[in-house]
Amino acid sequence: MSKQSHLGANAAAFLAGLIFAAGLVLGGMTQPAKVIGFLDFFGGAWDPSLAFVMGGAVLVHAPIYALVVRRRSQPVLQDRFHIPTQRELTVPLIAGSALFGVGWGLGGFCPGPGLVSLTSLELEAATFVGAMTLGMVVHYLVTRTSDAPAKAPPTAPRTSRADA
């Protein structure tokens, strides 16, 4: 990769972050009470707004993925696509997602809105992000030590671990 395309790729990443934040805020994701209102199916006053956030995102992204990304052998500014290749349903996928859901319902934050909400300087947002960071570091330290001797080739697990 030339220096110039790295610069372009970094600029694109920054732009993507800006747009993502705008989408989360406009969509109502930085209001934990609204998130909890979406998850409150049995409370008698269900707020379906967040289904529209997910729906709007998929309506834009899915056709471009199917019609443009899938037909390209590489992205515009980098060498290759980093798309998860794993297909199997695994225990960590389901157990991890279950834990995430409990945390989501408890605090009303998922990772993106938590990070964006830091800019409000509210104690709740800082508490959430601090604890989330701790949880991620603990997971990293635990899996690093347990994975190291078990998996011989360091390259294979790295790609299959590719983040969704």
Partner: peptide
């Protein structure tokens, strides 16, 4: 909120 953050941090990593 703190417990929620911990669960989200650990859960999203195990769940990829």
């Amino acid at each position: 909120v703190a417990v929620a953050g911990l669960l989200v941090g650990v859960g999203t990593r195990y769940g990829s």
